[in-house]
């Protein structure tokens, strides 16, 4: 049944810190690297070495300029599936290939059932689903189901690949359904927001907005560098003497 569960035991998801993300794309490549051998493998690339390159990625990092009265700010913005609580991508699916798990809220695609009608990608406003033109089925972020419960890897590695790769700690993983979980407290503390709440998809993932501008920036400028082509002074005299 592609009706999604009314409630899930856990609401596993990601929290992404727009303040610290530096747009290095480490999460993008580690996601691709892990998942092209994982649950939804392969993440097909078409013409990877020429013009017209295309391929399946579960996580994409955009860059925006946010211009307010205080000035402009560059914001790097990772975009992946938000594992919504009201996922229309699941209800529109005619085959039952798209489903939301009652145990942890993860939204997945069963590749054996998918007919590649693409309707779920039309129903997702977040652009989280990408079609694999070679296999003919839809693919999407799995929240790394094959890592987070994987008993063959050390416990500290049982987090999504994108989370463990992030060099600035901008990605967090946990149960957003439990208000006492560290990740829920982080959202609380930093005023994390859902994306496009007005559409009613009830996304699980949260984004932490950039922190307010600090007044602690240095007010005294550093001494100017010495002129490279001095006209006067001792160096100027040396320059003139040697140039004769």
């Amino acid at each position: 049944m592609t009706c999604f569960p009314a409630s899930t035991d856990k609401s596993l998801g990601l929290v992404i810190d727009l303040d610290t993300c530096v747009g290095c794309q480490a999460c993008v490549t580690s996601c691709k690297e892990w998942n092209t051998g994982g649950h939804m493998a392969p993440l097909t690339d078409v013409k990877p070495y020429g013009g017209g390159v295309d391929g399946v990625w579960f996580n994409r990092v955009h860059t925006f300029e946010h211009i307010t009265q205080e000035g402009g700010r560059t914001v790097h913005f990772p975009r992946s599936c938000l594992h919504c609580a009201e996922p229309a991508c699941v209800t529109v699916c005619p085959t039952g290939a798209s489903y939301k798990r009652a145990s942890d809220g993860i939204v997945l695609v069963d590749e054996e059932k998918c007919i590649g009608c693409k309707l779920c990608s039309w129903a997702c406003p977040y652009g989280a689903r990408e079609f694999d033109v070679e296999i003919g089925v839809m693919k999407k972020c799995t929240l790394c189901v094959d890592r987070i419960y994987n008993e063959h890897i050390p416990p500290e590695d049982r987090v999504p690949a994108c989370v463990s790769a992030c060099p600035t700690g901008a990605r967090h993983f946990g149960d957003l359904g439990d208000p006492a979980s560290p990740i829920s407290r982080l959202v609380e503390e930093r005023g994390g927001v859902p994306l496009m709440p007005e559409l009613g998809y009830e996304p699980t993932n949260r984004y932490l907005p950039p922190r307010a501008r600090s007044e602690r920036a240095p007010t005294v400028a550093a001494a100017p560098l010495e002129d490279a082509a001095p006209e006067g002074g001792f160096l100027g005299w040396v320059d003139r003497m040697l140039s004769r």
């Binding site: 727009l18 955009h62 860059t63 925006f64 300029e65 946010h66 211009i67 307010t68 009265q69 914001v75 913005f77 406003p125 927001v193 859902p194 994306l195 496009m196 709440p197 007005e198 984004y207 907005p209 950039p210």
Partner: peptide, 12 residues
């Protein structure tokens, strides 16, 4: 609302 950045202009 798509980026969670309130107010002002958001340019790609």
């Amino acid at each position: 609302s798509a980026t969670g950045l309130p107010g002002g202009r958001v340019l790609s």
